[in-house]
Amino acid sequence: MTGCTASKLRVVLPILGALALLPSNVLAQNAGLGAAGELVDPDILRVCADPSNMPFTDKNGQGFENKLAELVAKKTGRKSVAYTWFPTVTGFVRNTLGANRCDIIMGYAQGDELVQNTNAYYRSAYVLVYSKGNGMEGIETIEDPKLSGKRIGVVESTPPTANMAANKLLRTAKIYPLTVDTRVTPSMGEVMIKDMLAGKIDAAVLWGPMAGYYARELGADITIVPLLKEKKGSRMSYRITMGVRPSDQEWKRTLNRVIRENQAEITKLLLGYNVPLIDEHDNPIYAIVGMGEEEDKPAR
């Protein structure tokens, strides 16, 4: 996510009626067909995405949402995946999904009213990131007095800024821009991690998937702490869904079934990108549920 996507961040519903009894191949054959008011392409998975937004999506298909799109296309009987590219800035939904140029946003925070959410397929959190050995060991919340006076990087207007303001940490913070066009500007996640490694900031607070991915990409020996123990202020954890148009009820039900039947594979994909995953009880997820495997633990 860019800073803009992160700012939008503000389990499972049952599959209803006879739909729950239909085999996947029947759902695939009928996805996008015969549902009044639905404009979903039955042959091509038309994805709305940012062209340069790792670890989520990019034009080279290297993001985990690109890989997830390939899985969804296969499971719903689509012949291929096609993208409508648009930077994650103001107007993203209006100019993509809302304009009927594509049929799905692969990653969208649950509860945002601009789209209709599917069931969540992962849950993550904003995290505190700091270099090992800099005296911050043991910090688990923004409220910790050890952070007083520290130069902490944060993206403007994202949920952690409210908590930082309440604890008077914005006075010494470095504020990174909220809205950037990643086609010409590096991801704020990458910039913040590099600034921390260069000593320009003491720590960073950013969306977990970005922190985990860039920590691994940059070979950084850092600690990543999900901010799950905040006693007040904005919540730090969010469920991530797929976003569809409000009119596309049948399409949503089809995607819910894909998520339910392939959750283990989706989880394995996310862990492969070092995404800090948490369950509904705020416990970290390391194991690939139902696959008898264990992934390397994310950087901590």
Rank of each mutant, 00 (worst) to 15 (best):
K146L: 12
L277D: 08
I224F: 13
I175R: 15
Q116F: 04
I285M: 09
A211Q: 06
V244T: 12
E295G: 05
P177S: 09
A28I: 09
P177H: 00
L270W: 11
A73P: 04
I105D: 00
Y83T: 01
P246C: 02
P226L: 07
G91L: 05
A69K: 08
N95C: 06
M164W: 09
L68E: 04
L270T: 10
V127P: 11
G243I: 00
R216Q: 15
G98M: 03
A28K: 05
A20M: 01
L277C: 08
A99E: 06
K252Q: 13
T158G: 04
L178I: 02
L197H: 05
V72E: 07
Y122V: 05
S157Q: 11
I104N: 00
D282K: 09
T88W: 11
L206T: 14
K75F: 14
Y122C: 07
V93C: 05
Q116C: 01
N262D: 08
G138P: 09
L271S: 11
T88G: 13
A165P: 00
L269K: 02
T182C: 03
G149C: 04
L21C: 06
N283T: 03
V244C: 06
M242L: 15
M236E: 11
N262Q: 07
A166H: 01
A211E: 07
D58E: 15
